[in-house]
Write a protein that binds this DNA or RNA. Structure first.
Length: 508
DNA sequence: CGCAGGGTCTAGCGACGGTA
DNA sequence: TACCGTCGCTAGACCCTGCG
């Protein structure tokens, strides 16, 4: 979106080509508001030479020498080396953390702003059309009327004469809009009448789409992918970034935005690579990948990598804490003459550890959302199973009916459990290996331990973990040890069903 | 890359016409 | 007449492209 400050910048501070290049930069932002600068691409997109594109980029990214207006002194873009070479972030516009629905005025990225005809216009004509586009964004009307007076005072270097010649120019060059001067109460207005479809044609965020396409291409997967696949992948990826922005806002971890978003970006890129390598493997008798299954796969990969990322952060945190401890331990032997330095270092290490902990909390809450929904699913499934079984028992259904129902439910529960296991075992392995806890043979035991660990890590609240454990083990009184044996309390009546692979004990 | 050169913009000045 | 806003003109700065 062309936010208000960018809009004003375009109306006041740029020349004709700079106008196009600024619009290019706005259109080529990724989800984080970063742009990869490729001057050849810019030159091609904006109909100029690579050399001049470089010059403009240099200008847009350096402090402007004009003294008076503040916006002009602020460079339009600044280098963002954290995200890679040639990556710049837009200095104007709303950052992802500032945006709240409805809080910002903006101009939509109409397609016509990016056409060759538009780019060939003089700066005055471009400014007039941008003002009209702003109006069209806010009131959806294809007819825009703007007072001469407004243009004179609101747009730099806009005289009557320039308006008239710009209108002639627009009428000659642009076939999607007709302009004229109309009068109301002796006031001259500029009237723009756009073709109806123009107001609905926007350019989409290409940067992320191009990235996915590029990685698919590099992995040789691009032949098989239709638009549906790309859409599914982009939706999944964007979900993660939105979750990050939300959590950073919620946890007020604004200082960590750059580090965390750079982390998430590289996780996303790595995951896409893994995804397409996976996609390319011969499938055997497996079903064809659907867009949904591909996006679920991506989700799984990203969650795993996020877990690894948390583990890295955790060890950074422990390193700081360890260092702080070392400082204290050294109190007696060293630094006798320099206790202040010692305490400063100690405090610094503790503070850094606390900052890292905050980052961990942000990332954890992203993965937590996913696990929470899986846990809820599991909980619901078990509740449903118990209800069905109790109904069957009350209706004195046959052993076979009960057994078959159990089998169906248990298969489903195991499936969900597998997903959960996969999702959490990494968290446990990576982050708790320090605690020397070996994973047991029994999946149910393992899950129970995971639950404890996860609640000890505050991935789940104690209460949630308790509820889940309760619903898994207490209420239903199901105990599955190594032999998949099921018991339901009410000892007075119980029986066992023998099956070739499963043993059931069931009360009546 | 440097440079030439036409296009474009800015600031400042004075002319002009309308109004109190 | 004094004042105001608008317009056109001009010098000099900046924009942008093409040439070698």
């Amino acid at each position: 979106m062309i936010y208000n400050d960018i809009y004003k910048y375009l109306l006041s501070h740029v020349s004709s080509k700079e106008f196009d290049i600024c619009l290019y930069l706005v259109a080529n932002q990724d989800w984080l508001g970063n742009v990869v600068i490729d001057c050849e691409d810019i030159a091609q997109a904006c109909n100029t030479t690579t050399r001049y594109a470089k010059q403009v980029i240099r200008k847009l990214s350096s402090q402007q020498k004009d003294v008076l207006p503040d916006e002009r002194r602020k460079p339009f873009i600044v280098a963002a080396p954290t995200f890679g070479e040639n990556v710049y972030k837009l200095n104007l516009g709303l950052s992802k953390l500032e945006y709240v629905k409805g809080n910002a005025k903006y101009t939509k990225k109409f397609k016509f702003l990016y056409t060759e005809e538009f780019q060939s216009l003089s700066i005055a004509a471009k400014k007039l059309l941008l003002v009209a586009a702003f109006g069209m964004s806010s009131n959806q009307s294809t007819t825009q009327r703007i007072k001469f007076k407004t243009l004179n005072s609101g747009v730099r270097a806009m005289t009557r004469q320039r308006i008239h010649s710009a209108l002639d120019e627009i009428n000659q060059t642009m076939n999607i809009v007709q302009t004229s001067v109309v009068y109301k109460l002796k006031q001259p207005y500029v009237e723009f009448i756009f073709d109806t479809d123009v107001s609905q044609e926007f350019i989409s965020a290409e940067a992320e789409y191009e990235l996915v396409k590029l990685i698919a291409f590099e992995n040789g997967s691009d032949f098989h992918l239709t638009a549906d696949y790309y859409a599914a992948i982009l939706k999944t990826g964007k979900g993660f970034f939105n979750a990050l922005f939300k959590e950073i806002k919620a946890k007020k971890a604004f200082d960590h935005f750059e580090k965390l978003s750079a982390g998430l970006k590289s996780i996303y890129v790595e995951s896409l690579n893994v995804l397409f390598q996976e996609f390319n493997k011969p499938k055997g008798d497996k079903d064809e990948q659907t867009p949904e299954s591909l996006s679920a796969l991506l989700r799984g990969i990203m969650l795993n990598k996020l877990t690894d990322y948390v583990a890295t952060l955790s060890s950074e945190e422990s390193a700081r804490l360890q260092l702080a401890q070392n400082y204290m331990a050294a109190k007696e032997t060293f630094f006798k003459n320099n206790l202040n330095l010692l305490y400063d270092n100690f405090r610094k290490m503790k503070e850094e550890a606390a900052e890292i902990r905050k980052q961990i909390e942000v990332v954890n809450s992203i993965t937590q959302q996913d696990r929470k929904s899986k846990y809820n699913h599991l909980k619901e499934l078990i509740e449903k199973r118990n209800k069905v079984l109790h109904n069957l028992i009350n209706k004195s259904s046959s052993k076979n009916t009960i057994r078959n129902n159990l089998k169906v439910f248990n298969a489903e529960i195991e499936r969900v459990l597998d997903g959960l296991n996969e999702s959490i075992s990494r968290a446990v392995d990576r982050t708790l290996s320090l605690l020397n806890i070996n994973s047991g043979q029994d999946r149910w035991e393992q899950l129970n331990r995971h639950l404890q660990h996860i609640s000890s890590l505050k991935l789940l609240s104690d209460r949630e973990a308790k509820t889940i454990r309760k619903s898994l083990w207490d209420d239903s009184a199901i105990h599955l040890t190594g032999t998949s044996q099921i018991k339901i309390a009410r000892q007075e009546d119980s029986f066992a069903v023998k099956d070739e692979s499963v043993d059931f004990e069931f009360p009546f």
